[in-house]
C-alpha cells in the first residue's frame, strides 16, 4: 500500500517553544488513523503543518507527491477550515462560500451528508448546539473530494448521540481511497473505527502501529495501549 503522507525530520518552534522536534511518520492510503496524545502534545500543530496553514518549519512534509504548502492545500481538507466563518450566517450561505472557493467541494455530497446528520440548512450557525455545529463542520470537511482529511478532536465536548452520528458519517461518507487522520485524547471514542494509530509524545511520534496488530501482539485495547505510555505520569484528563 502506498503512503498518502510522508513526514521527515519535521521540527516546529513557536513563541520560543519547541513544539515538534525531528518528527517522522507516514500514513497509508485509504485508512483511518488516530492521532493520539495528551492535551498540548502537538496534535493540532501537526495537523496545521500538514494542511499548509503553518509554513515556518524545518523538514519535509509530502502529501501524495506535493511538498509546497499551497499545493498541499488542494489535497487536504482540514476541519479547522470552518473556524472563522461568520457564525451569524445561515448554514446554506456558509456552504455556498465553500462551494465557490473550493473547486473540489461537492454540493451534492454536502446536501446528502447534511440530511444524514439531520442538519437544517436554513438555521444560523450560532443558533446550533455544540454537537450540531460539529456535525456541520464534519459535513463541510468531508464534502471536499480530497485524498486526505484531517479531523481535529471532532468529539470534543459533545454528547454520545452526536458522537455516534459523526462516527457513522465518517464511515459512510469516506471515499474508499481517501485517508482520514483523527486526533483525539479520549481514545475510547474512536478506537473501534481506527485502522492504525500514531502517538505524539515528547515532540515526536513515538508509536506508529496498525490497530489490529496492537490487539493481536499486545493483547490490549487501543485505549490501554495508549495509556500504557503515560503510566506513572499525571494525566491531563
Amino acid at each position: 500500500m502506498t503512503d498518502i503522507l510522508t513526514i521527515k525530520n519535521l521540527s516546529y518552534k513557536r513563541n520560543l517553544t519547541n513544539i515538534l522536534n525531528q518528527l517522522n511518520c507516514s500514513l497509508p492510503t485509504g485508512s483511518i488513523v488516530g492521532l493520539l496524545g495528551e492535551n498540548g502534545a502537538g496534535k493540532t500543530t501537526l495537523m496545521r503543518l500538514i494542511s499548509g496553514a503553518a509554513n515556518h518549519y524545518r523538514g519535509e512534509i509530502k502529501v501524495s507527491s506535493e511538498t509546497s504548502p499551497s499545493d498541499r492545500k488542494q489535497l487536504v481538507s482540514f476541519s479547522h477550515q470552518v473556524d472563522d466563518v461568520n457564525r451569524s450566517d445561515r448554514l446554506e450561505k456558509i456552504a455556498h462560500f465553500y462551494e465557490a472557493v473550493y473547486p473540489d467541494f461537492s454540493t451534492n455530497k454536502f446536501q446528502r451528508l447534511s440530511e444524514f446528520l439531520n442538519l437544517d440548512l436554513s438555521r444560523h450557525l450560532n443558533d446550533l448546539s455544540k454537537g450540531n455545529q460539529m456535525k456541520f463542520i464534519i459535513a463541510i470537511t468531508l464534502s471536499r473530494q480530497v485524498k486526505l482529511y484531517l479531523l481535529d478532536e471532532p468529539f470534543d465536548g459533545i454528547d454520545s448521540m452526536s458522537r455516534k452520528k459523526i462516527i457513522a458519517s465518517i464511515l459512510q461518507w469516506k471515499p474508499e481511497d481517501a485517508t482520514i487522520l483523527i486526533s483525539d485524547h479520549h481514545v475510547d471514542d474512536i478506537a473501534n473505527i481506527l485502522d492504525g494509530i500514531l502517538i505524539v509524545k515528547d515532540k515526536r511520534i513515538i508509536v506508529s502501529k496498525n490497530a489490529d496488530k496492537i490487539r493481536e501482539d499486545y493483547g490490549q485495547s487501543i485505549e490501554d495501549f495508549f495509556e500504557s505510555f503515560y503510566k506513572g505520569e499525571d494525566q491531563n484528563d
Binding site: 492545500k73 482540514f78 479547522h80 477550515q81 470552518v82 472563522d84
Partner: peptide
C-alpha cells in the same frame, strides 16, 4: 484565519 489561508 484558517478559513481563508487554507483556500488552495
Amino acid at each position: 484565519s484558517n478559513t481563508y489561508r487554507l483556500i488552495p
